[in-house]
Design a protein around this nucleic acid. Structure first.
Lengths: 230, 230
DNA sequence: ACCTGAACACCGTTCAAGT
DNA sequence: ACCTGAACACCGTTCAAGT
C-alpha cells in the first residue's frame, strides 16, 4: 500500500515529484509486482505500469522487449525475494523448509502460480531445485528415485499453490460455497460428502500441505516409521 | 472434428451455408475449444469466436455472461470429454488410471492447465474427485489420511500437467535448452548437473509421472512392498 | 427470444522524432 | 542513449435498435 521509495528522490528536488530515478529494468519489475499484488493479473497494463513510473507507455519498450518479459521477470523476482533456507543436519527438515517457503512465496503473490504457464527456470528457481535435490541426495536417493522425487515434490508444491491461490483470488468463491456445492448433491458425491472434502472446518490448507510432504518423504525414501512419530 | 448438427437445418435452405444451426452455449464452447487448441490461449477472442460461428461478436453475450465464462466452460468441457475409468477390483490401479487420464486430458489441451487459475469445480471435475476418493476409501484410508492423499494426488497431477504443458507450449524452449542452461554453470548447480536433472535422454515425462504415483501410493498407504514389485 | 450496428473505453506495440 | 507523440490494429462489453 505505502510505497517506500529511496528518499534521495524526495530530497533532490522537492518541487518535482516523480520523473525521479532513471528508468531501469529493476524499477519496472518492482512496479510491476506492486501492480500485480494490488490489482491482480489484469491490473497489470503497460499503460498503467508506465503511469506508475511517470513515463510514457512506449518508454518501457526501451528497457523491455515485451509485456511477457515483464511477467517473466516478475515471477522470477518473487522467488528471489524469499531466501533459500540454510542447510541443516536434518535433510528431511531441509526439504520441508524449502517446500513450505516455496508455497508461501507463491501464496503471498496469488497471481504468480497462474504464470507458471511459461517455462520457469530463472536462476532463482534453479537455485531452489539445486537445494532441494542436494537434500534428497543426503537422504540417500540417487538415479531414477532421485529424479522421481524431485519432480514429485516440485509438482506438488506448484499444484498446491495454484489451487489454493485460485479460490483465494476469486472473491466470493471460497471453500464454503465449494463445500456447499458438494453437499447439495450427496447422491452424486457420496464419498466426498461423507469424508468432509473441502470442509474448512475439519482441515486447513496448511496442515494438509505439511502432511502431504510427510507422505511424499515416506513413500520415496521408505521412512514411514520416522514420519508417523512426528 | 465433424460437427453433428440437426439435419433439419440443412434441409431447410441448402443454399445458405453457415448461419446454420442456432447459436447455443454448446456450440460456442465447442468453437472456443477448437480455437484454443489451434491457436493457444491468446488465439481466443470474442471477435474471432464470433467469426468462427458466423455471428456478430455481441451476439455471444446473449448466451454467455462474459469471456471468463467461456473459458470456464471450455475447461470443464475437456474434463467431460475424457471419461472416468471403470471401477475395478484393484483400487490402486483405479487411482493410477484416473490420474493418468487426467494428466493426458490436460496435455492434449496445453492451454488448460494455465486456466486452473480459477476455482475449478465443474461437475466433471467433482465426478473425478469422487471416483478418486472412493478408490482411496477402498484402499483403507479415512479421515485425515484420506483428505491428505486426495489433495496430494490432485495437486501432483495438476502441477505435473502445468509444468509439462509449459514447455510443450512455448516453442524453442524444450527440455534440451533447459538442460543446457544447467550444465553451463556446473559450479552453481553441482547436484543437478551430476544427477542429470531435466535430461530427456535419461528420463521421460511419462515414466517419471508414473513412478511418482507409485511413491504417493506407497507413502500414503504404506504398501511399499507391492509397489516395488511392479 | 435472439441477433445486429454503432459506439465506448480501453489494449500492446511500432516508429519517427525529439533531446 | 533514452524518452515522447502520434498512430495502428486490435480488444471486451454495453446498449439501443431491429426481427
Amino acid at each position: 500500500m505505502t510505497k517506500d521509495e529511496p528518499s534521495s528522490v524526495w530530497l533532490r528536488d522537492p518541487g518535482v515529484r516523480a520523473r525521479s530515478t532513471p528508468l531501469t529494468r529493476e524499477r519496472i519489475v518492482e512496479a510491476a509486482v506492486a501492480l500485480l499484488d494490488g490489482h491482480g493479473i489484469e491490473g497489470l497494463t503497460m499503460r498503467r505500469l508506465a503511469g506508475a513510473l511517470d513515463v510514457t507507455p512506449t518508454a518501457l519498450y526501451w528497457h523491455v522487449r515485451t509485456k511477457e518479459d515483464v511477467l517473466d521477470l516478475a515471477v522470477d523476482r518473487i522467488f528471489g525475494a524469499a531466501p533459500v533456507p540454510p542447510v541443516t543436519a536434518d535433510w528431511r527438515e531441509d526439504v520441508r523448509a524449502l517446500a513450505r517457503a516455496w508455497r508461501t512465496a507463491m501464496l503471498e503473490h496469488p497471481w504468480a502460480p497462474g504464470l507458471i504457464g511459461r517455462p520457469v527456470l530463472g536462476p532463482n528457481v534453479l537455485a531452489r531445485t539445486e537445494f532441494l535435490q542436494s537434500a534428497l541426495v543426503r537422504g540417500g536417493l540417487s538415479d531414477l528415485g532421485l529424479a522421481v522425487t524431485t519432480r514429485l515434490l516440485a509438482n506438488y508444491v506448484i499444484g498446491a499453490a495454484l489451487t489454493e491461490s485460485a479460490w483465494r483470488r476469486s472473491p466470493g468463491a471460497g471453500p464454503a460455497p465449494a463445500r456447499a456445492h458438494i453437499t447439495a448433491d450427496p447422491a452424486a458425491y457420496p464419498t466426498l460428502t461423507a469424508s468432509g472434502h473441502l470442509d474448512a472446518e475439519r482441515w486447513d490448507d496448511e496442515s494438509l500441505f505439511d502432511r502431504g510432504l510427510d507422505a511424499i518423504l515416506a513413500g520415496a525414501c521408505g521412512g514411514a516409521v520416522e514420519v508417523r512419530g512426528r
